[in-house]
């Protein structure tokens, strides 16, 4: 196996370990959390010990924790997340009906972060003075504003006042309708990350621009724009892609706030609803999916390193 294969294998092993640990934490944490699902199920009515015992058996709450975890893991691997206590239907079906919206939202947001973040970074790095200052100021504002505030402003201005976008809902199944409904939520979700990526980009592009190899390219008669793309942007993409990867991983969690603010029926709003109703199986499943997405995105960034930086695979990258 070549060094690249070994590196990929290590990444996958790390991924599996991370998934194992996080699933245990998600599973364990819920049983430490306050609020008993049985009283939630009973809806406040007093239960006889017999009734309670039956319910506990039905939801597998009567067996020791490690045993339940092993069963849970086995079920999850078969795509069985149990039955929702609040919605009284299989969690996997709930997720299936909600996941589309969240995936669309994540895709749109990722595109926005990558395109606007890198674009603003390049603009700021190449145009010192007014444009650079404007980018710095606006990204500071973007970074400092919480997404629910951004959401409220966007809804007030672009949906209510100007009427350019719908106020509410996830839209139909067509791409056009999805984009129309999810553009404002994606902007709200991406604004802080765009600022982060743009600033990381600006700094690393500035550093790369001062490197000798950029001068070498210029000294050989390579046009400035081409040299910038090949030697400055290309090398700066190593830190920039880390910033993008980290951002995309963190917005997975941010979907909860934005989905609720825009009334989207995605996984994030499902998580909030099920937490409020102590719907343990659903909370577990959604948390697990969000954490898995986070870990997988990070693994993808690790793999991207090898493609971007030939020094990584030998473990000699130092800069």
């Amino acid at each position: 196996m070549g060094p690249l294969g070994k590196y990929l294998l290590r990444s996958v092993i790390r991924l599996v370990i991370a998934l194992f640990v996080t699933s245990a934490i998600v599973f364990g944490a819920l049983y430490l959390a306050p609020g008993d699902p049985i009283s939630q199920l009973a809806g406040g009515r007093p239960l006889t010990p017999q009734q309670e015992k039956t319910l506990r058996a039905e939801y597998n709450l009567d067996r020791p924790l490690p045993e339940r975890y092993v069963d849970y893991l086995g079920d999850v691997l078969h795509g069985n997340f149990g039955t929702s206590i609040a919605f009284q239907q299989p969690v996997s079906e709930l997720i299936k009906s909600r996941i589309g919206t969240t995936i669309w939202l994540l895709i749109l947001t990722s595109i926005l972060i990558a395109v606007a973040g890198v674009g603003l970074g390049v603009l700021a790095a190449r145009r010192p003075g007014f444009i650079d200052d404007s980018v710095l100021i606006s990204t500071t504002i973007g970074l400092a504003t919480p997404s629910f505030v951004v959401a409220a402003v966007l809804i007030a201005v672009f949906a209510v006042d100007l009427g350019w976008f719908p106020i509410f809902g996830s839209g139909g199944s067509s791409v056009g309708s999805k984009v129309e409904h999810l553009t404002l939520p994606a902007i709200a979700l991406s604004l802080a990350s765009i600022g982060f990526v743009a600033r990381t980009g600006r700094t690393s592009l500035r550093v790369e621009q001062r490197r000798d190899y950029f001068n070498t390219a210029i000294s050989r008669g390579i046009p400035e724009r081409t040299a910038f793309r090949r030697h400055v942007l290309r090398n700066a993409m190593i830190p920039i892609s880390t910033a993008i990867g980290l951002s995309i991983a963190s917005i997975v969690v941010g979907t909860t706030v934005v989905e609720v603010a825009f009334g989207l029926n995605g996984l994030g709003s499902l998580l909030v609803q099920s937490v409020l109703r102590s719907d343990f199986p659903t909370v577990q499943a959604v948390s697990l999916i969000l954490v898995v997405t986070f870990v997988v995105v990070n693994t993808l960034v690790d793999i991207l390193y090898v493609l971007l930086d030939p020094r990584v695979e030998l473990g000699t990258a130092n800069r």
Partner: peptide
Amino acid sequence: SLVFQDPRAAINPVR
């Protein structure tokens, strides 16, 4: 044509 002092700095490490 130029030859620079430090070839490690003058040649792009990722190409």
